[in-house]
Each structure stands twice: as C-alpha cells, then as structure tokens.
Write a protein that binds this DNA or RNA. Sequence first.
DNA 1: ATGGCTTGAGTGTCAAGA
Length: 254
Amino acid sequence: MRLATWNVNSLKVRLPHVIDWLAANRPDALCLQETKTADAGFPFAELEAAGYRAAHNGQKTYNGVAILYRGEATDITRDIPGFTDDQKRVVALTLDGTRLVSVYVPNGQEVGSDKYAYKLAWLAALDGWLRAELTRFARLAVLGDFNIAPEDRDVHDPAAWRERILCSTPEREALRALLAPGLTDAFRLFEQPERSFSWWDYRAMCFRRNQGLRIDHILLSPALAAACRSCTIDKAPRRLERPSDHAPVIAELL
DNA sequence: ATGGCTTGAGTGTCAAGA
C-alpha cells in the first residue's frame, strides 16, 4: 500500500501537478491540504478521470483538506468530533481496513499570538480524538501538514528558528504528545539524507539553497509502522513551474 | 533590514501562509 500527503497550496492552481503526480506514482491514497476551495468547486470529475475518488472537507479561500483514493472507502469523517471549529482542517476515511486521516494543523503565525493558542488547543483536540481512533483501528495512518518541525535536524538553520513558530518547545511537545499513545514518524524509521525538508519558502531562493523545514509528516500506528518499507520526500514537483511550496511525502507499506 | 513570493478575493490592496 502506498500512502502520500501533499500540501498543494490551492488545488485549482496545482491540479495539473496533482494529476501528473498521481499518474507517475499511483498511490492508493493521497492526502491533500490547503485545497482552498468549497466542495462545489472541487475537481471531482478531473480526478475521477485520473482514476481517483475523493473525500473533501472544503472551505473557500483558506484551508480545505481531501483524501484522493482508489477503491471503496467507508466511515468518512469530517472535522474533529466534538471540537467546534469553523476551519476545515480534517477529513478521515477507512480504506481496505486502514484508517486514514488527512490533517492541516494551524500555522500559529507567531509564538504567543491568538493563532498560536488556537494551534495548541487544536492539537490537544486532535490528540484526544486520535487516541480514540487508535483504540478503534489497529491500522491507523495520520498524514498531513503538521506545521511543526519535530527536531533541530528538521530545520535548515536551527539557531535562526529557535523558539520561533513551527519550532517552539510547546509545539514540539504537542507533537510528541500525539505520538505518545503509539504513533511513529514514518520518515525516521529509516536512514535519511541530512537536511531533508518538505517545505521551502517561496522567497529568497530558499528551495535552490535547500533552506527548508520538515513539517509534513506521516504518522503510523504500530501495525503500520511494522509494515512500512520506506518513507521519502519527493522534491521533483517543487522544481516545476508554479510549484506548491510543499513537497509530497510518500510511505510504502506491505 | 520582520523584507523577500504566492494565493484568493476582487479590481485596491490586503490577509494569510510558514
């Protein structure tokens, strides 16, 4: 089973890249973040023609998450149950007995801001829900843009980013809390190149200089971690014309 | 140097991203 996640920063703009990437990589499921469209504007027909169904939790202008998948899905869930939130950041479904969750964690803007408080409250709500999902599903994968670089090795310049947004200690502790009940960062199951990142700022030629952060993750339950054979970041789409600022992350499972 | 790009909204230029 091949699972992937990609923050596309507008599905409308990036649809040609997504269609091409699906054809080249043929994942069983691709989780998307920042589709930035209401459900009415979602390109269901174009994706169907590419061989994929879609579950979307859409929102105009901002946010919006989806799961593109092959086969039959059941138990589609939108938003974090019991958490009041007008931002569309979660969609989940069950595919072939595997529970898949696509998440777009709030950015937080600045440490100490209202948006930062929202980010931490949101992560606490996600934590509570994922603990419950782990009791329901042995095979659980949580994929998405977490907007947190877990460790200094996930940051191109740790000194410059120290205690800044995406790298602050409370954010890293919140991510560790998500992992605590039994989720594993699939990327770190394997030897990886140094300076591996999944996002690069559009400005200042950051991609060309590989000045990025690793903030897009695939978290696996114990059964899936045991079945995982590789986890990689595909930088190829970041080199295209008009790219997303994020690259896809892919996990191969038995 | 708190900038630099890119998006959506909407037709000025701002909010938001990370």
